[in-house]
Design a protein around this nucleic acid. Sequence first.
DNA 1: TCGTCTGGCACTTTTGAATGGC
DNA 2: AGCCATTCAAAAGTGCCAGACG
Length: 752
Amino acid sequence: MLSVEMYPSLALGPQRIGDCFYREREAPAHMPLYPPTCDVAAKALPPRLLAPPPVPNEPVTKTQKDEVKMDLENAFLWKQFSSVGTEMIITKKGRRMFPGLRLKLSGLNPSLRYILLLDIVPVDNSRYRFQGGGWQAVGGAEARLPDRVFIHPDSPATGAHWQSRTISFHFAKLTNNTLDSQGHIILHSLHRYQPRVHVIEARDVLRWGGGQHSFVFPETQFITVTAYQNNKITELKINANPFAKGFREDGMNMNCDPCDSTELLTQPTSTSSTDLQALALASLPPLPDPSCGYRPQEASYRDTLVPEQQLDLGQAFMASQMSDISISMANGMQDTPGSEVANSIIERWVCVMFDTMGEAAYTSSFPAAQANSSSFPSAPLPQSSSSFPSLPISDPSDTSDPQPSISPIDYPSILSSSPTLSSSTTTTPSLQQTSFTFPTPPPSNSSSPQSLLPSSSSSSSPSANTYHTIPETIRPHATTDASFPAPPSACQTGLQDQISAHSLLTQPSQPLQGQPVTSGNNSPSDQSSAAFIYPNILPPNPDPAPAAAHPHPNQNQLLAPNLPCSLPTHGAATSFAFPSVPPHMQNLSFSNVSPTPSLAAAFPPSSFTHPSSSLPHPPFQPSSCLAVPSSFQQSVSSTPTAHPQNLPNPSASSSYPPVELGGIPQFNPPAPYRPEMVLHHPSLLPQLDPSLPSSTPPPALYPAFPSYPLRLCQDPHSSLSIPFRHLYRQHQHGHAHPQGSYMMDMSTRPMF
DNA sequence: TCGTCTGGCACTTTTGAATGGC
DNA sequence: AGCCATTCAAAAGTGCCAGACG
């Protein structure tokens, strides 16, 4: 089982959230500085502070927030890699991602502060092997590793800050070292992952956990490797990565700054990314199908707003903490015991937040993912020629590309609600629905009129209103994986692409996802046969039916409920135990949650099941569920209706009772330093495998993962200066860190 | 034997300190 | 003394390769 022994790093102070912050500049050699721990606060933290704010009795309808839109600026580059089958090197010391995630945010409230998180979740429950020029699933995935979240160094920062520059997560590193103590994101080699970005409001020091938006860019899926398998990928990396310049035959120098976490936007579009892409692409073969050309820059995924959670921590507390955090807070820092408490509280809050986030992630990210992935293979839309997959993009400057580019598809936000924890003060229920805008239309998608595409970058883009959805569903295995490279059978026209949110919701129910996987198909042999051919090899028009017919071997297992929280099948739904979480915390934001329909929509069962997570965790209650009110759970679990088909209109779906957010006055300007933080949180581990039926608990491929209850442990290192700490999933029995560090204590997790 | 992983290597970029000039 | 620009060395990132491991 997972335990501290197994993951020593988990117990390390640095791992903690607070520790996650470090100042890049200050640290020599880019070594993360782990400030002193701030555990003391925890000890000092008065119980009352720990207690979550009371849940508002009545959800207040919250005005729809501005739609938050996120664009993947270097989507073009990602697309290039995706078309070949993106591979990411992981090393023991940690390896940066390339391409990195370069994002542009819009729709944020300039005055509010937001935290940006990056997490990487497995796409399916398979292990891959590069064979015959493609990636094939060759077996079950390995036991899931501690989940870590990378918090953007600039976090928290104002909406104006985020929107004024290109946001890059290049600092995030991937490692295969399960004992990693550097806070890197731990992944298994030869597994397929999907990065996700979460935007969380931090309205004020006292109240964090406002609306949450999660974004998934299907083209950013990748397979982890310790050495590149596909020469094409190597070529792309060498051509596009400045650090690999030495390997270029032509010595082409790419103009890009790999190190900028955020790039100030002097222009509407980040030139650097564009230039980079252009340069990188220059050497690349042209895309076969221009008609399907999509404009990464313009494309944007729209997230769904996650229920807001508020924690009313208390100003004094928050102020002190924030100051300590070195996050410049307007309120100034008070060096008082309160600060310590604040830290602890924050950590606690983070745990909770992530729990809720997890849900959010499910809602937003999954849907998107589904849509996306599905779009490739099973996209309902007509167009089709999906040349997308393996075709290289010829025109580096796709922006300039005269050819019709596919307008970004806006996916209806699956779930947008901001259930606010009712703080003592006001609670405004806010449901927000945002649509997902898929930056990259299904790969092969046909050209959609540009006009249709709202440029994500432009704040003015009206896209917010439109919920365009791509009816595609993601399939974890074989054909479904197509999301990645797979050539979509059809290209979407912008108009066509625009699908009502409702349709989006319903789509999940479509054949692919909805269809239950038969156990018979699960045989290992089947797996190999059904092997998903990573990128190119996918059949032009993957037939959903076949996919269903040849589910990944693991699928059976995958059958587990999509949502961790929705594990009712396991019977866990109601039984969640969150030792560390106060009861009311659990109920926090969701008390008002509207009935299932919305939830179901948000979390289509089929679409979310992640084999690894879901399967193994029978009883498991993801921490993500932590914040979920019982009602929510019930809805989810009880709502088999979750099937998209049954789902009500998306708009309706966003029925979460809004949690009220306190308006925090001012966050100080972003801290000068670049703190990085990695969190372990179960909640953020949604399952990307849509195809799995939620209703039936899958047979366990792996020993079931027990639940991951959140547990706060005291950490001797208290560093008031650091607001956040890494949260680790720890075995429930997890030994409290000797030093008493706070950790996410995940309930027992079997070690394999 | 095969597949995978690891560490070292050469190369490049980035960063910060040191230096010099104004 | 302060500011700015330039230079240099160290650190870090990159892919390649040979060897080790299971």
